[in-house]
Measured scan of single mutants.
Amino acid sequence: MTEYKLVVVGAGGVGKSALTIQLIQNHFVDEYDPTIEDSYRKQVVIDGETCLLDILDTAGQEEYSAMRDQYMRTGEGFLCVFAINNTKSFEDIHHYREQIKRVKDSEDVPMVLVGNKCDLPSRTVDTKQAQDLARSYGIPFIETSAKTRQGVDDAFYTLVREIRKHKEKMSKDGKKKKKKSKTKCVIM
């Protein structure tokens, strides 16, 4: 069974824990209790493949930012979460993405942009803004509501699919490099 290491990042209060708990335990946590770091595991079937999701729910508070490099190193894919009623959390996505790329030393890291709290009427981040940002990053965008469960499975499952595509691409690139290195030079 394939294991996928997913990391949920975003500013404090955007609903990272609520999304994760909704996926794992099928219930909505409405009281806000700032996370330092929590880890969850769940076995699911995605596109006919049974897999184990190892999900790291991270601290959004700035005082825990020193811990970010460590979990970013171990993560295979990242859910970059903002709240649709919090423009600052949307603007912060850029910083999370840049930090992930720096730590992973790669421009090509599996990510999904997630606009959470889409059940709320007080939207300050337009869907088109988020779609445009995701398009500019070359990553999928999904709106979710941890409260109603809308888009929750889709967000995590899409990230797994992005990781699969990335692994497939990397193995193809690896095979191309191996083929090239088999060419021999004969000096007579």
Score class of each variant (00 low, 15 high):
80 C>S: 01
158 T>Y: 11
31 E>V: 08
152 V>A: 07
58 T>C: 12
120 L>Y: 05
133 L>Q: 07
142 I>M: 13
103 V>H: 07
34 P>D: 12
99 Q>M: 09
133 L>E: 06
86 N>R: 02
101 K>R: 12
55 I>V: 12
69 D>P: 06
165 K>I: 03
140 P>G: 11
88 K>N: 10
44 V>E: 10
35 T>N: 05
53 L>Q: 06
64 Y>T: 14
141 F>K: 05
160 V>F: 05
37 E>P: 00
106 S>M: 09
12 G>P: 12
29 V>T: 09
5 K>H: 06
21 I>G: 15
75 G>Y: 13
36 I>T: 12
79 L>P: 02
123 R>N: 13
32 Y>M: 08
169 K>R: 14
100 I>G: 01
67 M>V: 09
76 E>S: 10
140 P>A: 12
42 K>D: 07
37 E>I: 12
84 I>Y: 15
50 T>Q: 03
106 S>R: 05
7 V>P: 00
149 R>I: 11
74 T>E: 15
58 T>F: 04
99 Q>Y: 08
37 E>G: 13
174 G>C: 13
59 A>L: 04
84 I>H: 15
24 I>V: 10
139 I>F: 08
62 E>M: 08
144 T>D: 02
42 K>N: 07
112 V>I: 11
176 K>C: 13
69 D>R: 03
49 E>R: 06
166 H>Y: 13
40 Y>M: 10
38 D>S: 08
97 R>F: 15
24 I>K: 14
89 S>P: 09
114 V>Y: 00
154 D>I: 08
165 K>E: 09
2 T>W: 03
63 E>M: 04
10 G>F: 00
90 F>G: 03
4 Y>V: 05
18 A>R: 06
39 S>T: 08
173 D>S: 06
122 S>I: 08
175 K>A: 14
117 K>W: 15
114 V>W: 00
93 I>R: 00
188 M>Q: 15
67 M>K: 11
65 S>F: 04
113 L>I: 14
66 A>Q: 08
94 H>C: 04
117 K>I: 14
117 K>R: 10
92 D>V: 13
67 M>G: 13
104 K>V: 10
72 M>W: 06
96 Y>W: 13
107 E>I: 14
111 M>T: 03
57 D>Y: 12
22 Q>M: 02
149 R>P: 14
54 D>H: 13
123 R>I: 09
126 D>F: 09
30 D>R: 10
103 V>Q: 05
110 P>Q: 01
123 R>M: 10
180 K>M: 12
28 F>T: 08
81 V>W: 00
166 H>T: 05
26 N>A: 09
83 A>P: 13
11 A>F: 10
67 M>A: 13
6 L>W: 01
136 S>Y: 04
179 K>G: 15
31 E>R: 07
61 Q>H: 08
33 D>F: 07
106 S>P: 04
67 M>Q: 12
175 K>T: 08
73 R>H: 05
127 T>A: 12
93 I>K: 01
146 A>C: 09
67 M>H: 13
83 A>Y: 01
35 T>A: 08
43 Q>H: 10
180 K>I: 15
51 C>E: 05
37 E>T: 05
159 L>I: 11
95 H>T: 02
59 A>V: 08
5 K>I: 01
80 C>F: 15
42 K>V: 06
175 K>R: 07
43 Q>R: 09
13 G>Y: 07
8 V>W: 01
31 E>A: 08
175 K>M: 13
112 V>N: 00
91 E>G: 03
66 A>H: 07
75 G>A: 15
94 H>A: 12
68 R>Y: 06
131 Q>N: 06
95 H>D: 08
42 K>A: 08
82 F>P: 00
17 S>W: 00
153 D>K: 14
11 A>G: 05
161 R>H: 12
82 F>I: 05
15 G>E: 00
95 H>G: 03
115 G>E: 02
153 D>F: 13
120 L>H: 09
5 K>W: 00
11 A>D: 06
22 Q>P: 15
158 T>V: 04
72 M>H: 07
152 V>W: 10
77 G>M: 07
67 M>F: 07
141 F>S: 04
60 G>M: 06
86 N>I: 03
51 C>L: 04
33 D>M: 08
104 K>I: 05
84 I>D: 15
56 L>R: 14
18 A>E: 09
177 K>M: 12
88 K>E: 10
123 R>K: 11
20 T>K: 12
